[in-house]
Amino acid sequence: MKFLPTILFALLFVFISSCDKDEPQTEKNFTLTFKSTYGGLALEKYKNYPYDDRDIQVNKFNTFLSDLILVRQDGSEQRLSDIEWVDFTPDLAPDNKAVDVKFQYTVPAGNYTALKIGYGVRPDLNAKKPADFAPEHPLYRENEYWSGWQSYIFTKVQGLYDLDGAGDPESTLTYHCGSDAVYRTSTMNATIPVTDKSGALTVEFDVKKLFYYNGGLLDLDDPLNRNTSHNASNIDLGIKVMDNFANATTVK
């Protein structure tokens, strides 16, 4: 019995100590939505858009994004994802309108001030191949991998350009950009509150801005500006496209 006060005191101490600690931080839902536009207009496959004095169509647009990270005011980081696959123009879409692509994450509540994005597949992941991943993993996609170059195809932009000026786009544009040489990163500043309930951010890519170079649009009359795909001979064009990705990105 003589130890009873001691035991009670010890229990009281443990109780009080536990109250001192911060409540465990609970994770909140965070929705990241990717949208695509052309010159600020909603993107649609097989639709003519102005390109200088000609017309252009963008009939395929997809991309891998690496290291999606939210940044707090103090500079600390909250990783959302190592890699995502964003396909705005899937084969089985119900119509030609580019789809919005949404991802759900859980993050601690707080005020975030920036989103970091890697455009393409970061080098350590790009060193792997589809067979290294489970079917549900974004990098399982074999059709987005070049075995010849041992690289994922980071970004695909395909369409038609009115090369002959007759009014209807007829000449092919194929920008398949990949390899470590074209991987790019950026940090997009924004006010990103994640409240006690949830948070959300919309990231918009303006595909027209992928075509900018030296203050103007790429001259698509030049055949060297119309196609780049999986051969090192025209990687310069791939680099131009991927260099433009950060400028083509806005966060809302």
Partner: peptide, 29 residues
Amino acid sequence: FFDEGQVVNLPDAQCFHCHGSITLTGNNY
């Protein structure tokens, strides 16, 4: 087939864009 022939002056047959991957089909349309 795999568009790897430039170094030996061979043209691209462009097959693998649709018939890519280890199974040689991307199952796209």
